[in-house]
Structures are given as C-alpha cells and as structure tokens.
C-alpha cells in the first residue's frame, strides 16, 4: 500500500509534535488525531457506492440486503446522504434521506414507495438498529469531530500495523454508547477496529474494517466491515463495491424531490 506525500508529511508531523509539545494532554492528543483524520478524509465532494449487508443470527442463519448509497460532502456541516433499498423485494424502492449535523439533531426523511409518501423521521432514534442489522444509525452516519470528545490512550501495533488507540465519548445524550475505543491506522488515519461500550459501560460490539484502498489522494475506504455483537452473538458484514467519487452530485440530488424518484 502506498501513501501520498501529504499523508507521509502528516504522519511525520504527528510523530514530531509530541516531542515539540511535551505538555500536550491525552485529551488534546486525541482531539488532534481525530482532527487530522477528519481533515485528511475531506475534499471527496461526493461519493456513490453499492452495499451488500449480510445479517447473521446466533445460529448462523443469513439474510441479505442490497442498498445503494450516495453521499455529499457539506462544508461546515455534516454530510448529506441517501440510501436506496433494492432488496428484500418488499421494501424495494424505499429510500432514506439524512442531513447529519454536528451538534443539532439530524434531519431524516423516509420515502415509502407503496404509499408514495415521504415521512419525516424522529431524529431521536440514532441508537436503533439499521435494517435489523448490528449497525446502529449512529454507526453509519457521518462522523463529525464535534459529535465526540476524545482521549488518546496509547500507541499499539494491531495485526502488524501501527495504530493510535483513542477513546471517544459521544456528545449526544441519547447515544447508545458510553464510549468507543478506536484503533486508528497511523498512515491513512482511518479506523481498523472500533469497540463499542453500551450505556452500562460493558463491551457491546466490535467493528473491524478490512481491505482499505485509496480511491482519491488521501481518501481511503474499506471494502469490508465486520460487526460482531458480543452480547447477542449476532453479526453483520457490510461489503462495499463500486465506490465512485466526485461524480457530480449536488444538493439537488439530496432533497425530497430526488428522494421520491430515487429508485
């Protein structure tokens, strides 16, 4: 895997900085790494991808869901995204539009094709499961810096890759988590692994992200997400395919009119 000059410079700066600023607290360092990660993962403009979700119960029975996703990067606010469901067949054509915001609640609408109805969705339900999977809505919406506070715990080698281990605490009152522990790759600054701790502070889920590829300079995406729920024994695999960036989408492709004709 090769890294662009920019990320090498970033990494060098990140390595040098602790020496320059000995007084930096673990909280400051956590925030700095999160900020660098966010900065590096910007200027992708828009993104489209196909997603296959495999839901597995404790007995290993599988169910398959196919979704197309479109996202638009918004300067100074959370991203806009649209998910269009292709299977199972009874929800085909259902589409979900979301405007994420850093501090105020997200705006969400659901289009129900049988009724031709756009329904506003209460934004409270971020901790609920997405499509019956082990992913909560809050796991899949855009990760804005302001949504968490941070603390650097340690540097660690994870499967032979150098990582920063960072603890983050959701700012959102109704988050399903007390804290997350993330293993951030020192090169591309994307998470390799995240542990989710529930409201009672017990380990709930572990997410691992596999097969990162660089799609635009500095923009890395994992092809496969594995989420395991330790408390129920259920798991969900997300297989991402056909990533495309800077496809020319605009905010007009993320409004209620486009939601109604999403398909």
């Amino acid at each position: 895997m090769k890294y662009p000059l920019r990320s090498i410079i970033t990494s060098c700066l990140l390595l040098l900085l602790p020496a320059l600023a000995l007084a930096e607290s673990a909280e400051d360092k956590g925030l700095r790494i999160a900020t660098e990660s966010d900065k590096m993962n910007s200027a992708w403009s828009d993104q489209t991808a196909d997603l296959v979700m495999i839901l597995r119960n404790k007995q290993g029975d599988e169910a398959r869901r196919e979704i197309r996703s479109r996202s638009l990067e918004v300067e100074g606010d959370g991203d806009k995204s649209m998910s269009i469901f292709d299977t199972p067949a009874d929800v085909k054509g259902t589409a979900f539009l979301s405007f994420t915001h850093a501090l105020k609640p997200d705006d969400q609408w659901l289009y129900l094709p049988a009724l031709k109805r756009v329904k506003r969705i209460s934004s409270r339900n971020k901790s609920g499961p997405f499509m019956g999977s082990e992913f909560a809505y809050e796991d899949l919406t855009s990760q804005e810096i302001e949504k968490y506070s941070y603390k650097w715990l340690k540097d660690e080698s994870l499967d032979g890759q150098d990582t920063y281990v960072i603890e983050s605490y959701p700012a959102y009152t109704h988050s399903g988590y007390t804290r997350l522990i993330s293993w951030i790759h020192k090169g591309h600054l994307r998470p390799l692994k995240i542990e989710f701790y529930d409201r009672k502070n017990s380990l709930l889920k572990t997410l691992t992200q596999h097969d990162y590829k660089e799609y635009l300079p500095g923009i890395f995406r994992a092809d496969r997400f594995e989420m395991i729920n330790h408390q129920t024994g259920k798991s969900t695999t997300l297989n991402w395919d056909n990533y495309a960036f800077k496809t020319g989408l605009s905010s007009r492709d993320f409004d209620k009119n486009s939601l109604k004709r999403a398909r």
């Binding site: 609640p105 705006d107 506003r120 969705i121 209460s122 934004s123 409270r124 109704h174």
Partner: peptide, 9 residues
Amino acid sequence: LQLVTEDWL
C-alpha cells in the same frame, strides 16, 4: 404542517 423535535412529531 409538520414539526419534528427529538422524540416528537
């Protein structure tokens, strides 16, 4: 007319 607040529509 519809107004959404966190838990309320």
